[in-house]
Design a protein around this nucleic acid. Structure first.
Length: 650
RNA sequence: GCCACCGUAGCUCAGUGGUAGAGCUCUCGAUUCGUAAUCGAGCGGUCGUCGGUUCAAAUCCGACCGGUGGCUCCA
C-alpha cells in the first residue's frame, strides 16, 4: 500500500508532511501564499527542478525564488523558450536548434532560410512581450522515444538530437502555449515570470558547433529579475566598452593596427612600446634570477626543420606559406617564417653533449613568431598574427619534472598574483584528437602535471581534449573586458619532440638517456598580456609600467624654468617625465593629465619655485595634494618604480 | 574561414539622390591662471577601394579590403 503522506526536509532541517503526490508548488503553497507566488523552481537533493513535478518521500528540498542565482539560470532558459515561441509565431517554418541559458543571458539557434536583421529582432521582441503577457504555463511531459520522434517529425534538428540521446535517458518535452520543445528543463511556472529581458544581437553559429555543418542564426538575449538589474547589466556592458584595450589604446596612443601593414600586426607606438619594454625587462629579471639563459634565434628557417619537428603538416594551416630559396640555392630548399621557437631551441640544446648534472637547461627567448590566424578570429592585441612569446624551453630529467613545475607555478604566482594583483584560473588540458605520440606517453605526461598541481594544493579545472598536439598542458586563463576568456601563461610537457630530435643526456651511469622537454610562457605573449593589462587597469597602470610617469605642470609661464629643472631632475633619475609647457590653465592641464591616467602630477607655482619643492597630486586622488622637496619626490618615485609596486607607496 | 552589421576630418560622431558638417585634438593670437575643460581665429575630408545605376551618388547596387559581434580555431 503506498503511503498516503510523504515527509520532505526543508533547508532549516525541519520536516514537512505533504500528501503523497504533492508537487513543489504544493509545498510552496503549504508553507505560505507569499512563497507560493514567489516560487520559481525547487531544488531537490541538489538538483533544480520544476515546481510542478511530484516530490518523493524523504528528499531535501529548497524552494527557489528570485533571490537564488540558480533561479536566474532557470529564468533565462525559459526566456530562450519564449524567444523560440515568438520566432515560431512569426516564422512558422523556422527550424529550431538549441536554446540554453548562458552567463548573463540566453540564446536560441534557428534556421529561417535567411538571416535575422535588426528589424526582425524588434518584431521578435514585441512578440515575446505578447507571449509573456499571455502567461502560458510551462508544462512538462515525459514521452517515449517513438512519441518524441512523432512530435518533432517536422524538426530535423530535434530528430537528430533525439537520436543522440542514450537509450535509458528520460525524454521530456515542454509546452508553453503554442510552442513545444524537446528539453530537459527545468522551467519557471509560466511565461509571465519573464518580465525584464532584451534581445541583444543575432549571429551565425554552426549547427552543433561543427563548421562542416549548416550555419544557423543565433539570437542572443539577456533576462533579469528586476528592471534595475537589467539596467545595471546594460550599464556594465557600456562600462566594459570604456576599458576595452582597443579604445584605451587609441586614447593613450599605445598602439595601432593599420590596413597598410595588415590585420593582426601590431604597431607599438612610443607609449605602448614602454609597456612592451618594461614587461620584457621584468620577465627577464625574474627568469635570469632563476637559472634561465637567454638565446636569440632567426625568424625564418628552412622548412625542413618544421617537417622534422612535426609541425608540418599538422600546423601548416596556421603557418604562412613557404618562401623560395635564396639565389644559388637548390630549388627545393624552402623557408618558413617561424610560428614557434621550439625546434631552434632544441638545436641549441643538441649542439653539444649534455650531462645529467647540467639539467635542467632553461633556454628563454622573447621572440617574434608569426601565425596565420583565421581572419575572423583576430581581436585587437588579444589575438594577433605577429606575436611576441615570452617563450622558454626547459630540458630536464624525468625526476626533475615535478620540481620544475613547482617552480613554474611559483613564477606564475609572483607575476600574476603578486606583481599585478590578478585572479587567475588554472586548467589542466589533456590529449586532443589530433595528436602526436602514443597514449602511453600521454598518460605519463598528464599524470606528471596533475600531481604537481595537486601537491601544490591548487584548484584547477580539467580541460579534456584541450592539450597541444605534442603534449598536455597547464593553462592560465583570464577574461577580457567583454567577458571573453583567453589563455595567458601555459606550461606544456612534451615527450614528442625529444623523440623526433633524439635528445639525450649522459646519465650518472654513463649511458645515454632521453631528455624530457617543457614549453612554457608566463605572459603567454607580450601582445595579449599587454592588451589584458590595459583592460585590467583601465589604462591606469602602476607607476613602473606607465608610459608617462609624471607630468610637471607649471602654473604660469613665470615658473617655466623651475618646472623645467624639476623635469630634468626626474629624467636624470630615470623617471619618465613630461613637461606641460602649453599656455593653458592649471585646471586644463590637470584634467588632461587625469584623463590620460598619468600617475603623478607635479605642480610648480610661485611658492614651489621659490622653495625648490613640488605640489604632488596623485592620479585619482583629487585635491589631496602633498608638497615635497624635489629630491624627496624623486627619491619616492625611484623607490616605487624600483620595487615595481602595484599601488603608490605611502 | 563562415554569418550578420559597420567603414564620413587625427579622435568621437551628424548628414537617406542635388555645392561635405559639429565637438574635441592640432596650429596661431590673446590670456599668465593654485588642483578636472579661458576666449577667438585657422588648418584639416577624392565620405575604405574599385566598378555599376543615374542628368546627378557619402547616400542606391555589386565586388574587394578592413573593422565589430558571434561561430569555428588558438598564445
Amino acid at each position: 500500500m503506498p503511503p498516503s503522506e510523504i515527509q520532505v526536509v526543508l533547508p532549516d532541517g525541519s520536516t514537512k508532511a505533504l500528501p503523497a503526490g504533492a508537487t513543489g508548488a504544493d509545498l510552496a503553497k503549504a508553507i505560505g501564499p507569499g512563497l507560493a507566488k514567489a516560487a520559481l523552481a525547487i531544488r531537490v537533493n541538489g538538483d533544480v527542478r520544476d515546481l510542478q513535478r511530484p516530490l518523493s518521500d524523504g528528499v531535501k528540498v529548497s524552494i527557489l525564488t528570485d533571490k537564488d542565482p540558480q533561479a536566474l539560470d532557470v529564468l533565462r532558459h525559459s526566456s530562450a523558450h519564449v524567444l523560440a515561441t515568438a520566432v515560431r509565431q512569426l516564422f512558422p517554418n523556422a527550424q529550431i536548434g538549441f536554446g540554453p541559458p548562458i552567463e548573463d543571458g540566453f540564446y536560441y539557434d534557428f534556421d529561417i532560410g535567411r538571416p535575422f536583421g535588426p528589424e526582425d529582432l524588434e518584431a521578435i521582441e514585441k512578440k515575446m512581450a505578447e507571449v509573456v503577457k499571455a502567461d502560458y504555463p510551462f508544462a512538462r511531459e515525459e514521452v517515449s522515444r517513438q512519441e518524441a520522434k512523432k512530435r518533432f517529425k517536422d524538426d530535423p534538428l530535434k530528430l537528430e538530437r533525439i537520436d543522440d540521446l542514450k537509450q535509458d535517458e528520460i525524454i521530456s518535452v515542454y509546452t508553453d502555449g503554442p510552442f513545444v520543445d524537446l528539453c530537459r528543463g527545468p522551467h519557471v511556472p509560466s511565461t509571465g515570470k519573464i518580465k525584464f529581458f532584451k534581445l541583444l544581437h543575432a549571429a551565425g553559429a554552426y549547427w552543433r558547433g561543427d563548421e562542416r555543418r549548416q550555419m544557423l542564426q543565433r539570437i542572443y538575449g539577456t533576462a533579469w529579475f528586476t528592471k534595475e538589474a537589467l539596467a545595471q547589466y546594460i550599464t556594465r556592458l557600456e562600462e566594459a566598452r570604456k576599458r576595452d584595450h582597443r579604445v584605451i589604446g587609441k586614447q593613450q596612443d599605445l598602439f595601432s593596427i593599420q590596413e597598410d601593414v595588415g590585420p593582426g600586426l601590431i604597431m607599438w607606438h612610443p607609449n605602448g612600446a614602454i609597456l612592451n619594454f618594461e614587461l620584457r625587462r621584468f620577465i627577464e629579471d625574474v627568469i635570469l634570477e632563476r637559472g634561465y639563459q637567454l638565446v636569440y634565434t632567426p625568424n625564418v628557417t628552412r622548412e625542413q626543420l618544421f617537417l622534422r619537428s612535426g609541425h608540418l603538416p599538422l600546423y601548416a594551416a596556421n603557418q604562412f606559406p613557404a618562401m623560395g630559396a635564396g639565389e644559388g640555392e637548390s630549388e627545393d630548399v624552402r623557408y618558413r617564417v617561424k610560428p614557434m621557437n621550439c625546434p631552434m631551441h632544441i638545436l641549441i640544446y643538441a649542439s653539444q653533449q649534455r650531462s645529467y648534472r647540467d639539467l635542467p637547461i632553461r633556454l628563454a627567448e622573447i621572440a617574434n613568431v608569426y601565425r596565420n590566424e583565421r581572419s575572423g578570429t583576430l581581436h585587437g592585441m588579444l589575438r594577433v598574427r605577429g606575436l611576441s612569446m615570452d617563450d622558454a624551453h626547459i630540458f630536464l630529467r624525468e625526476d626533475q619534472i615535478e620540481e620544475e613545475i613547482f617552480n613554474l607555478l611559483d613564477i606564475v604566482e609572483l607575476v600574476m598574483g603578486k606583481t599585478f594583483g590578478l585572479q587567475y584560473r588554472l586548467d589542466l588540458a589533456t590529449r586532443p584528437d589530433k595528436k602526436l605520440g602514443t597514449d602511453a606517453m600521454w598518460e605519463v605526461a598528464e599524470k606528471a602535471l596533475e600531481s604537481a598541481l595537486k601537491r601544490r594544493g591548487l584548484t584547477y579545472r580539467m580541460d579534456v581534449g584541450g592539450g597541444a598536439f605534442y603534449g598536455p598542458k597547464i593553462d592560465i586563463k583570464f577574461n577580457d573586458a567583454i567577458g571573453r576568456e583567453w589563455q595567458g601563461a601555459t606550461i606544456q610537457l612534451d615527450y614528442e619532440l625529444p623523440e623526433r630530435f633524439q635528445l639525450e643526456y649522459t646519465g650518472a651511469d654513463n649511458k645515454p638517456h632521453r631528455t624530457i622537454m617543457m614549453h612554457r610562457a608566463i605572459f603567454g605573449t607580450i601582445e595579449r598580456f599587454t592588451g589584458f593589462l590595459i583592460e585590467h587597469f583601465a589604462g591606469a597602470f602602476p607607476l613602473w609600467l606607465s608610459p608617462v610617469q609624471v607630468r610637471v605642470l607649471p602654473i604660469a609661464d613665470g615658473q617655466m624654468d623651475a618646472a623645467r629643472a624639476v623635469h630634468e631632475a626626474l629624467r636624470k633619475a630615470g623617471i619618465r617625465s613630461h613637461l606641460d609647457e602649453r599656455s593653458e590653465t592649471l585646471n586644463y592641464k590637470i584634467r588632461d593629465a587625469e584623463t590620460h591616467k598619468v600617475p603623478y602630477m607635479a605642480v610648480v607655482g610661485q611658492r614651489e619655485a621659490e622653495a625648490g619643492s613640488v605640489a604632488v597630486r596623485a592620479r585619482g586622488a583629487g585635491k589631496k595634494q602633498e608638497v615635497l622637496p624635489v629630491e624627496e619626490f624623486v627619491r619616492r618615485l625611484v623607490n616605487e618604480v624600483r620595487s615595481r609596486a602595484l599601488n603608490p607607496l605611502v
